[in-house]
Nucleic acid binder design. Sequence first.
RNA 1: GGGUGUAUAGCUCAGUUGGUUAGAGCGCUGCGUUCACAUCGCAGAGGUCACAAGUUCAAGUCUUGUUACACCCACCA
Length: 882
Amino acid sequence: MNTTELDKYFNPEEAEKKWYQIWNDGGYFTPHVNTGKDPYTIMIPPPNITGKLHLGHALVNTLQDVVIRMKRMQGYETLWLPGTDHASIATEAKVVDMIKKEGLSKDILGREGFLKRAWEWKEEYGGTIIRQLKKLGCSCDWTRERFTLDEGLSKVVQKVFIDLYNEGLIYKGERLVNWCPFCHSTLSDIEVEYEEEPSSLWYIRYWAPDKSFYLDVATTRPETMLGDTGVAVNPSDERFAKYIGKKVVVPIVNREIEVIADPFVETEFGTGCVKITPAHDFNDFNAGKKHGLEILKVIDEDGLMTDLVEKYKGMDILTARKLIVDELQELGVLVKIEPYTHNVGKCYRCHHTVEPMVSKQWFVKMEPLAKPAIEAVKNKDITLYPERYEKTYFHWMENIQDWCISRQLWWGHRIPAYYCEKCGKIEVAAEKPTHACSCGCTNWIQDEDTLDTWFSSALWPFSTLGWPEETEDYKFFYPTSTLITGNDILFFWVARMIFSALHQTGKIPFSKVVLHGLIRDAQGRKMSKSLNNGIDPLDVIRDYGADALRFSLVQGLSLETDIRYSMERLDIAKAFINKLWNSAKFVLNGIEGIDRSAYNKANLQPEDKWLLTKLNQTIKDVTAELETFEFGDALQKLYDFFWNDYCSWYIEMVKPRLYDENCKTRAEAAYVLHYGLSVILKLMHPFLPFVTEELYERLEPNSKPLIVAEWPKAEYLDYKADYENIELMQYFITSIRNVRANMNIQPSRKTNLIFVTKDKGEFLKAAEPIFMKLGFAKSVEVRDSKAGIPLNAINIENMDAAVYIPFEDLVDIKAEIERLSAEKEKYEGLIARTKAQLANEQFVAKAPADKVAEVKEKQKSYETMLTSINERLNALRGSAAA
RNA sequence: GGGUGUAUAGCUCAGUUGGUUAGAGCGCUGCGUUCACAUCGCAGAGGUCACAAGUUCAAGUCUUGUUACACCCACCA
């Protein structure tokens, strides 16, 4: 027995430092390929190297740690593989900022010089978030840590690109893409976020060359008119049918363009005529392609006007817009301006307005890849939690567009494509071609672009395990078990991992996907820098400890909704951890010196059996909830059991045995206290790893650390009768406390308890010490009939037994009459209800027979109670009158 | 425009296949304890279960519609 006294309060800082080191040094985080055991694998959603731990990270990593710790304790060979993402846009922006301060730029440094600086930046700051994950207690296998740009992963990226190209699933094409002028790169469709912005709708008049007619068009982007190469109307629109095929003139540039018919035009919107700028609008691009219209670029890669019209060259869009509108006004072709709100695409990284731009880019052909990915979810090879995300997933996958994967950035995986300097022929290969091009030229120049960051993240579940080699790790740990991540990257990442894995490995990447919501502030607002409503998890760890942070994130968590987080949660967490600490301190103290090996199952007392039954149920519940990722419910059940059943009831019930050195069942009490706490610590460990480990060390000084303790299993127990007896006792104790509280009876005033019961006598008498401890009793007497019970007594009863508490000088008859009258009213109300129900012929005729019987049964017991209350009342009234 | 989700006590949320005075934790108020506990026990206030209609013997629970909020997709220039 460890006799070291526990400190008064838990010291999180000390425990965190101590235990994290013991776990890590002890190799408990590192699994081994072991065919004798089942693997359980989780791949971390790799945080960006630019990242700093925020509450979202804290949540997603706590959840993963909860699952992985449970699985480890359940005996799985558990791998939680950590790592970071190179985050091309975000990191490149940071490095550009950094060198800017030194008066440098990408152009000055050149590609190589810039990348050198980027790697230096990564070495210095890229590990921040990893250190922070360790503070949170994450039990990742740091020996397998990966980085999306490290050598192995880069090779995989290259291989996959080349393979997809050779299969015709990657192609280069001229298309309209989303261009962020600020990041100076293309973006994929999902990297564009739309925001409503107040703007105007400008109506512009396009005259026929001979002024015989005109068409008015409405636009939100008047500046793009310089690049108009057509005007479209709906083919079924009678108003304009006669103009189809005729020409009109674009003002300012005086270009003659044709009026075309296309069904995409809404007759109701604006004037029913649309100007077509194929270079800068997705609909216009498609229409232009269909009708063979010329593509004229109005805006360049910097978001400035091109030299299409000399005087506007180099202007930013808003300035140009103003001047062009002025000019249209002067020309007398500006018909009107209406206020209008429309959606503007914004870059999800920098929030600058995105420009649709014609450009030659690399794409992944999605349709062939999407099909099996849809199938895998449909046939439940992959399950999403919550299930409703499957609908969203299907909808997106079924309508998916080709994925633009080239980025005009340097920080990332460079596209393994080479162009013949002379004829431009493309060769896709891992190394620069050494052979001559068919044109005879031997100069090959590599594509300048890099790949979308998500292209490499999509390969994460298998690239991290050494694929395409059939490594031991890959064979053993792949496919992975569960992916836990935020619902915001279902498309960005989850979907792409699914189709990538299926195509590359022929296997699903994971069988379960758990998606959690966003963390919001107490008012339900997003946490953001501008609102300054963010809570820094590192501050929380410093002030409350990692366990409290974890508890506060999981408590009340539901995957169905966003999470409202406030500091209040930490008070609850703190109180809970304190309660755990103190109860353990008490138990350790209380059982010290008691020989638990003298424990004999045959000597278990009813309260022991009751606790063991409850414990059993808690093991089942918590395990089941965690298996279905109901984290909040699992913790709640554990919380309730621990606080109410274990602390408030069980500890209190066994105190008399503990304090009585001659008690014959002291060993059993100590055993159950110890065992119960041990199970609680085990079940609690995934949520609160540090405090539980600290306590477990005192509770089981000679065993392995809790992190590798065996997860509790529910056993078959047949303690029904004792269980019910304890419940009966609890009913009486609660009722006695209740009555006494209402009558303001001092706790120091102990009473006799006289029970009248047919078959619970033995138990109730045996429970005398508990009634004395918890029910303010000085003695317990048991009788088998009411005869001779003193009249001046409080009476509480249920169907199994009745208790009489003689007033002595505690209560007066009036108070008891009042109390019983209220009881009487309550039962009369209940009876009225059941009577009405049974009087309803429809109910009796149509409700299931057992329901009707149930109501009848209820009414009968209510009536019995009422009769008893009435008898008592009459007797008391008679006595009061006398 | 299409879709998904949420709406239950001051706050955070439970409420199983519809079954009968709607629950927990926290907070608040009051009383009492201080014998492991920055405690604990008991009680109280506080709910037209968003609204409306319907199905049913019976609706917080099912159906339809409405409203509010959140999110996703689409992009009518």
